[in-house]
Amino acid sequence: MSFIARISQRSPWLYRINAGSCNGCDVELATTACIPRYDVERLGCQYCGSPKHADIVLITGPLTLRVKDKVLRLYEEIPDPKVTVAVGICPISGGVFRNSYAVAGAIDRYLPVDVNVPGCPPRPQAIIEGIAKAIDVWRERL
């Protein structure tokens, strides 16, 4: 791996997409970002407000029919190379909302997912572990 790639992999910027989540996982993501105990900035991570700045996208929620098109469009707006992390069981499999009339289903049917972090919600350490795995995947794409 080249020197440049080794430097770039130390700056993964995070972007959150809430695909109809109950906010449980979003609270854990906020905890991971904001509480000094789980400082993700050590990994060079930074939450960004625009999808166009993102490298690693964290998706929470069971992908409801109402947000499906918007989520897919947001995903298209993230420049390559990018990595997707499904946080919580809802985006992975539908979780407790599976087979609901309002839910489109597991998110990997619609866009490529790279890392899954199961939990309802996962604890902050598990999310950090997922981000660390995502950085490994991202390094290979750089």
Partner: peptide
Amino acid sequence: AARLQRRVGPPLLQPLFDLVKLARKRTL
């Protein structure tokens, strides 16, 4: 800023890493 918030914070050269990373991303 991280220390003032009782965090460890990023490496000192983090802004440089960010720049190198941005140079390798696609332009939309």
